[in-house]
Design a protein around this nucleic acid. Sequence first.
DNA 1: GTGAAAGCGCTAACAA
DNA 2: TTGTTAGCGCTTTCAC
Lengths: 353, 353
Amino acid sequence: MARKKQSITIKHVAADAGVSLQTVSRVINNEPNVRPEMKARVQAAIEKLGYVPSIAAQRMGGSRSYLILTLNDRDRTIADWRERQGTDWVDQMMLGGMLKCAEYGYRLIVELVDTHSDHIVRELSAAIAALRPDGVILTPPHSDNPVIAQMLIDHHISFARIGSLAEGPGFALTMDDERAARLATEHLIKLRHRRIGFIAGPSDYALSGWRTAGWRATMKSARLDIEGLLAEGDFSSASGRLAAAQLLDGPSPPTAIIASNDRMALATLEVARERGIEVPGDLSLISFDDAPIVRQTHPPLAAVNQPIAEVTARAVELIIDERAGRPTPDGPIVVEASLVLRSSTAPPRGGTG
Amino acid sequence: MARKKQSITIKHVAADAGVSLQTVSRVINNEPNVRPEMKARVQAAIEKLGYVPSIAAQRMGGSRSYLILTLNDRDRTIADWRERQGTDWVDQMMLGGMLKCAEYGYRLIVELVDTHSDHIVRELSAAIAALRPDGVILTPPHSDNPVIAQMLIDHHISFARIGSLAEGPGFALTMDDERAARLATEHLIKLRHRRIGFIAGPSDYALSGWRTAGWRATMKSARLDIEGLLAEGDFSSASGRLAAAQLLDGPSPPTAIIASNDRMALATLEVARERGIEVPGDLSLISFDDAPIVRQTHPPLAAVNQPIAEVTARAVELIIDERAGRPTPDGPIVVEASLVLRSSTAPPRGGTG
DNA sequence: GTGAAAGCGCTAACAA
DNA sequence: TTGTTAGCGCTTTCAC
């Protein structure tokens, strides 16, 4: 077996095909103005030599880097990994994003960044300078961060914002959290619940507002009172326990609760169990996110399933399309979440709340 | 806010500090032969301008790419992600690998490859040619693949093999599967079990052999018979069911079972439940891997916890050390797995098997 | 200890 | 339609 120490470059291909470097470059990049015959010859040489362009060199030459970065919140991501509860967000992002990237010869790099503004500027600058990615995918809670957006604009980097409805530069993609909350609320109303509690997420996440709004609007349409039925957590388990306690210990507790994420839903389940409140007999429970863990609880939890893989794949596609000069849609892209029913919901005792 | 369209390069730093490009380069790379005074001046300029070296350019210049690749089995990884059971392997690799990479200014890129030999050569070639990684981390079942090793050697790329004991080039890292299986077996023996079944993994994974060997050796030391107590699965749930059935339906079924991964352990739990066999009353159960899911079952499963994050961090460290010319250890690196007890084990009914 | 030169593999702008 | 010429930002020689 020959030791090919020297990797083969565009030069070798050009020599083998008997054409200029530029022609090879044109073939590689699928550019026009190459006769089919030439193209075939070059491609034959590429095949034969097993040539693959160097991304570093392509970058240097001033074109694409074939790198797409995802920006994820460092603390939250690491905490999720450490807890080993199954980090659905990152997993599903990789599933959707990496596979789509691979289709186009791109790579996805996960970049963890600090939430604090001054850190984020430094970290993102460094990542951009070092990697020169072709595109960046923003995830909550960074999706609508104006500082990040401006930096990306300055550097002429395409970007997508997952979980965002804001207009402006960059592609906005949403799973329509408001609609998702509505679905959950309507399901409970249909079961004849009248006192439906809601545990909101932290306000630095735009989606927290949308989810709460969806619940609030649906309750209003059904002429149901929401007095004492809203509590706020920060997505953590501890905050979920507090919120659940607040709702359940009130003067007129809910017969159903929707929690804005899995962790808080699990906390609610715990609190209910401690108080001898049966789920779903005494209390129906619906969760947001549908991470692996909610399928294993007793009872398994109904949940809003977020199509993170799909939305990430779309984000990648949009970035690549834009870079390639293909037309891209205008408004926000909507990939709808769905409600997955399991055995955590039931009619309230007595048939009405 | 100024629009810095043109990113700042080593030239700007050199100009600002009033030195040559070369001197700046030396400072960046911490090379000798720079007077402290010069060094300080250059570093001040770097700070001031917020300069970050371009990885692409560094690569081009013929030095490090600051990229480390992990090679993971495509089908298995995607299947895990799709099932959404919490993909512990990849998560934990990222946790350990990314954080360690970040410490040294490296990035980790997850590369999915096909198991088939001819595909793997093509895919790895392409990845190497495109990315020119400084190092590659091999995971089972690719850790001892001689074709991969030879390619990496040919390209002078450092590599680490996770879950390998083989000598030869590349760093071998192991979680000592044999010892882990011994721990599990000994725990059961101490509980007075005498018929301890073992569900092995597929033979294309070297670690399957080690785990089985650990169980076998421990049984032998305790003078316990293993007749009819070994079944083999392929890490899938279906195979786990078959294996469990094979063991439990035998003439003299085990009072305890060790399964070589979580999925097969869960399958065993299911099969037991179907047959009315109580865990841990009638059957003790220990799992390998300790993925999130086994904490949520009823009962939660005792499991061998694989320190994947730590072992990946070590692998990254070894690669970076080698690249930096620092001394690296000789033999295989051992990061020991531990046995996590939960409520799935108990003495056998009647005190003896 | 420092600097000037050449070149890494590729693409953009130009010329033919 | 094709080929030629400059760079891209950095690191490596090898002088000084």
